[in-house]
Simulated assay, not measured.
Amino acid sequence: MSRPDQHSPLVDLGQERPQLPARARNLSPIVPRASIAGRALVAVVAIMTFLASITTGTVLLVSASASEWQSEVASEITIQVRPAASRDLDRDAAAATQAVRNQSGIVEVRPFTKEESAKLLEPWLGTGLSLDDLPVPRVIVARVQPGTTLDLAALRRAVTLVAPTASVDDHRAWIERMRSMTGATLFAGIGILALVIMATVISVSFATRGAMAANRPIVEVLHFVGAGDRYIANRFLRHFLRLGLEGGVIGGGIAMLAFGFSESIAGWFSGTPVGDQFAALLGTFSLRPSGYLALAAQAVLIAAITAWASRRTLFATLNEID
């Protein structure tokens, strides 16, 4: 059996292995970018962002519609002249109209005819009914000049002096109801957003712990070679921030498209009872540019919350590994 020559040159086996450039080695992520957990987290963040955007957009639509309603209702006063056995209804309605015109701060007075007053009852009584035998009051609508404080008590005295069966309504009850509805909608939207944020934090926390558990050997090796918790946490933080931004862009973008097409979709139902009810509640279904900016800022906020929840869970998990 021959012995190997002690003076034969040594072969560097390292040259036989494929060598990667230093830049490629540095770009290799610690946390795999494409994984089932990562895709699931993107889907969760996208769904949460979509729900939050729909909630915020609906609250903005309701608030804008309620503000328009309040401004319109607050600038109008309704006078009803009821029929009485000993009174001439047409004469009382004309006298009440003139009394309203004589008041300062009134810029427009529109008395409704008998047919127009009866037509106001059609949404409740339907069409084709004979209202001749019903005591249908005459309606007078007066528009108040914006910024003018109207003496409502003096207006009531002047109207009832010439038409004792008349009543003056400044719609304060309707305005209070609209304010109450707007406030309730706002609080409901805040509650839904709080639940969405809580669900996002919980989902990100579980995803972070799962990623740390799957990459525990890598984390231990990094600890062994001297890497600190901040270095490791930053690698995971970038990963989850990217996932949060991706999910936020997807969910927020779909919500913006939905609001963008909602006005066209609402046009299909225009003139129907359902369409009219939604139009009365949500207006034209179109968000203002500031609304779209709010949705974009909200998507970025949810991505930031995703990164914050990930960072908080990361350091707690690293302490357990240590």
Rank of each mutant, 00 (worst) to 15 (best):
R177E: 04
G252C: 01
D170F: 09
G226L: 03
V274G: 00
I192P: 07
D169P: 09
I192F: 09
P217V: 04
A255H: 03
A255I: 00
S180F: 11
A296F: 15
N234R: 15
G248Q: 08
R216A: 14
E176V: 07
S270K: 13
D169N: 15
H171F: 07
N234S: 14
L193E: 02
T208S: 00
V225R: 06
L295V: 13
G191L: 15
L301H: 07
R288I: 05
L237R: 15
R216S: 10
G251R: 03
A233D: 03
L195C: 02
A194R: 07
F269H: 01
L301E: 01
F261V: 15
S286F: 05
F269M: 13
G283N: 04
E263L: 06
G189V: 02
G189F: 11
G275K: 09
F278I: 11
A194Q: 01
V274F: 12
T182N: 15
A266I: 05
A207I: 08
P273W: 07
N215L: 10
H239N: 11
G191A: 15
S262A: 15
S290N: 05
L257E: 00
A280E: 13
A299P: 11
S286H: 12
G226W: 08
A188T: 14
R242W: 08
F285K: 00
I197A: 14
F259T: 08
L193D: 02
E246K: 05
N234T: 14
V201T: 12
A173K: 09
G267Y: 10
L281D: 01
N215P: 00
L195A: 14
R230A: 14
Q277T: 13
R235E: 11
G210N: 15
G226E: 08
I265A: 14
G189A: 07
A173D: 14
A173T: 13
A266N: 05
V300P: 10
G226R: 08
L295M: 12
D229P: 02
R179N: 13
W174V: 15
F278A: 04
T208C: 07
L295C: 03
R238P: 06
I175H: 06
A297T: 10
